[in-house]
Amino acid sequence: MTYRDVLDNRSIAVSTSESPDMPALGLRDEHLRDAMTEIARHTLALGAKLVYGGDLRGDGFSRLLFELAARYRRDTKSQNMVGVTNYLAWPVHIKQELKDLDETAADLEGTAELRLLDIDGKEIGLEERHQLPKQMPTEPEWAKGLSAMRHTMLAETDARIILGGRVDKFMGDMPGIAEEALYSLQDKQPLYILGGFGGCARDVAEAIGLLESNSTREWPGREKFGPFKGKGLKNGLSMEENKVLASTPHIDQAMVLVLRGLTKSKLGAHKGTSARH
């Protein structure tokens, strides 16, 4: 069985944001963006779709993924390829200007797509969004809307890759990457932890016993990973392979392991039990 046989038409969620540990690791922000580029290049080339929950900021990872999807479509002459789906949680899009959402959706047509969700995680179209007034969400609305989006993404994706991630100045009940990783673990969705770039992904790897803790960094919800310590990740990799994946800063090595795991794991098997909102 080839990688394309496994990944064609599969949806792979990616969780990432800036890592506070890059300077201490001798890395720069460009290394994290290069890693995202390699993840996108491999998965898109093998027929998969990348799924991301972003906020459309100008220098954010959503924009990087959109550029990569457009480049892949151009380079492969694939005229019907929608390579990236960007979920917008209710608290994210409800505070944005309608014209910005309309323009972004139009610019992405044919290469990527926006999926707007209501506060309970149900999809709404742009036309329905036009009927809603712009507003500033409260903290409880942020927490509810983001968690609902992450449950929806869990139900509609086949595996998740996490790397980097900040653990402060976040919205919601816990750091976003941590919450998404926790949902994957709880639902036995294949989870690939690239901890070599530090940040929240490294913390998750430590919390479940893949790596020894150098200096435990506390953040809300970290204790929820305790029950998964020493247990398999259901991702097709051995414990030793997962330890390498959780520690290597070399994206080429990490991608070999991710693709090996995706080939061996039972993609989509968790969907029968995942919570849909």
Rank of each mutant, 00 (worst) to 15 (best):
E206H: 03
R129T: 00
A35R: 11
Q135R: 15
R202F: 09
G26M: 01
A269E: 15
H270G: 03
S11A: 14
T273I: 11
G176M: 12
R57P: 01
V6Q: 12
W142G: 00
F61L: 14
P249V: 08
M1P: 07
T273C: 06
E223F: 05
R166E: 12
S265M: 06
R217P: 04
I39H: 03
V84E: 10
N242M: 00
L88T: 04
Q186R: 15
K77R: 15
A207Y: 06
E67R: 15
G226P: 02
G47W: 08
A112S: 15
K77N: 14
M136L: 12
L98E: 07
Q186P: 01
M149T: 02
V92I: 15
G195Q: 06
K169P: 00
E241P: 02
A205D: 08
K134T: 09
A178T: 01
M22R: 14
T85E: 14
A40H: 11
L88S: 04
R276L: 14
E141D: 09
E223W: 10
D168G: 09
I39G: 07
G199D: 07
E67I: 06
P20L: 01
K134C: 01
D120H: 05
Q253G: 12
A70N: 10
P137Q: 03
K229G: 05
K169H: 15
A181Q: 05
M22K: 14
G226C: 09
K224S: 11
A207H: 10
S215D: 14
A105E: 12
K229Q: 13
G176C: 09
S274V: 12
P91S: 07
I251T: 12
I162L: 11
A35D: 06
Q189H: 03
G110H: 04
Q79V: 11
G176Y: 04
A45Q: 13
S265A: 15
A48E: 03
Q186H: 06
A205V: 08
N214I: 13
I39E: 04
K231N: 04
R260F: 02
K234D: 15
S265L: 07
V258K: 01
A45S: 14
L50N: 04
W142H: 05
N242F: 03
G199W: 08
A106Y: 09
T2C: 10
P175K: 00
R33Q: 11
G53C: 09
L46G: 04
P249Y: 05
D34W: 08
T263V: 11
K243V: 06
T216K: 15
A159K: 00
A40I: 08
G164T: 09
I208A: 07
E123T: 13
L116F: 10
L65M: 10
K224V: 08
Q79G: 14
R63W: 10
P140N: 00
K49S: 12
G165L: 05
P137I: 00
E38F: 10
G230K: 02
E179N: 11
Y52W: 10
G172Y: 00
I94V: 15
F197T: 05
A254C: 06
L114E: 10
S238P: 07
T104E: 11
A254M: 06
G272S: 09
A178Y: 04
I161N: 08
V244T: 13
L32V: 14
T248L: 03
H277M: 14
L56Q: 06
G198V: 07
L7P: 08
F170T: 02
T152A: 13
P20I: 04
L101K: 05
P249A: 07
K95E: 07
I94S: 08
A205I: 02
G236F: 06
A159N: 03
A106G: 07
G261W: 07
V204M: 01
G26E: 01
